[in-house]
Amino acid sequence: MECRNQRAKVRAERIKKNGGSHTSAEWKSLLASSPTCAVCGRSWAVIPPRPDPRYKHPWTKGHKTPIYHGGSDDISNIQAECYECNFRKNAGALSRAPVGPAKSVQQLKMEINMPVAQERISRRFSFVLNNGTEVFPVQMKRRETGTIAFRISAGGTVGNTLEASEEVDEETMVRKVLEEGFAVRCKSLDGNTNGLYKHGHRSVREVRRNAT
């Protein structure tokens, strides 16, 4: 709690220094006209529930130019972001001092979207594990050839090896995993959980199909 309070104080000081303000009515009006996350473009309905059940909505108040990069708290610098994009963007921000000139909105958006592009996650469906962790199919890059594809396997004792796997596109992956029972390499959005999973696997609680 003390650490959280300290972060809040640091953030409040930066907001005061940067200037700008907005009203609750301005934020509600902006949110009402924002059906999707301003960063990743997903609609609110397809974003997984927040891990903390105290928070009922997937949206958060984000700054186009982050506070720690000199952005103001004016409504013109505010946008509706999903909690995943906002948390990824702000991870460690309060512990870093700004270096060099403030970055443009386009530069920041490129940096924010970079981890998602590098992970190459498919959101067509996900597996919810018994411990509540949600993992998504993820494309893998083969070092020898640079090939990037979804890696699926029919299973078996050597199903986790490259030799026993198939490298396929997203449509093939979805069909073989959901209709033919193949396993696929998956990863959680925070990167802490990864492995080969399939419907019916002992660690999989449910399959969550998302709108395309």
Rank of each mutant, 00 (worst) to 15 (best):
K198M: 12
T23A: 04
T145L: 04
P49N: 11
C3N: 11
V105E: 15
N131Q: 05
V116R: 14
I47K: 02
G146N: 03
E166N: 12
T212Y: 09
N160M: 11
A149T: 00
G20D: 05
S33F: 00
P98W: 02
E134A: 09
M1Y: 04
T36M: 07
S21Q: 10
E111P: 00
V128R: 15
G155H: 08
V99H: 10
R96M: 13
H201K: 12
V39M: 05
K64C: 10
N210A: 13
E163C: 09
L162P: 07
V10F: 01
S21N: 11
M173R: 07
K198W: 11
S188Y: 06
T147I: 08
L189R: 12
K89D: 05
F150E: 05
S24L: 10
G195M: 07
Y68A: 09
E134S: 06
G100A: 08
S24A: 12
L162Y: 11
L30S: 05
D169S: 07
K64P: 03
K16T: 05
T147P: 01
Q79P: 01
Y55K: 09
G146W: 04
L162N: 12
V128I: 13
F125R: 01
Y55V: 06
K198A: 15
F150P: 06
R50F: 10
R88K: 11
S76P: 00
V116G: 13
K103F: 03
A211N: 11
G20Y: 02
R14T: 00
